[in-house]
Amino acid sequence: MKKRIVLPCIALFLSMAIYAQPNPEKKAQKITDKITEALSLNKADSKAVYNIQLERFKDAQDIQRKYANDPEMKKEKLKANGNETYNKMKNYLGKERMKQWADYRKNNKK
């Protein structure tokens, strides 16, 4: 009787674990949509921002896996990834639009 309950519970847990994995494409699209709206970006700029963000989230996912057992190194690598992303965004959008984005985020915290 216990086996009848335990096996479905294990299967449910495993399926939930698979779906709980972060999806870099969705995360990149979500933040790109916000940036596009906040800065009124055209399609080309929006696509470029999406590509930068997608790379960021894929790299972060790799860092999370690779350094799962080394929290200090993971923190350092994630910070470096964030700095690299910021610099790419600043190089593409420019200082003024990055300031607009920072102001938007500051004023629209939830």
Rank of each mutant, 00 (worst) to 15 (best):
W101G: 01
I10D: 13
I63M: 09
D59C: 08
E37A: 10
P24V: 01
P71V: 12
K99P: 05
A17W: 11
K34N: 13
Y50M: 06
K27M: 11
Q64R: 11
K110G: 11
A11G: 10
D62R: 15
K88H: 13
N108C: 02
I10W: 09
M98C: 01
D62C: 11
K88L: 13
K79R: 07
A20W: 01
P71L: 11
K34I: 14
N51V: 08
E96T: 12
E37P: 00
W101L: 13
N91M: 12
P8R: 15
D33Y: 06
K77W: 03
K66F: 04
I18A: 12
A60P: 04
Y67E: 06
L39M: 01
P22G: 08
S40D: 14
K2E: 09
M98H: 00
I35S: 12
L78Y: 02
V6M: 10
K58T: 10
Q64H: 07
R56T: 00
A38N: 02
R105V: 09
L14P: 07
I31M: 11
D33T: 03
S15M: 12
Q21I: 09
A48R: 14
L39I: 01
G82V: 01
L7N: 03
D45M: 04
S40M: 09
F57Y: 13
Q64N: 13
V6I: 15
N91G: 15
P24W: 01
I52S: 05
T85Q: 07
N107T: 06
M98A: 06
Q61H: 09
M98N: 00
I63K: 13
F13W: 13
L39T: 09
S40C: 08
N51H: 15
Y104P: 06
L78V: 02
K99G: 01
E96L: 07
L14D: 04
S15Y: 10
E55R: 14
N107K: 15
K75T: 06
A28W: 03
K66A: 00
T36H: 02
E55F: 09
L54R: 04
K75P: 04
K3M: 03
T36F: 04
P71M: 07
W101Q: 00
L41R: 05
M1W: 03
E84I: 00
N108I: 07
E84H: 11
R4P: 02
A68K: 10
E37W: 02
K77Q: 11
D70N: 03
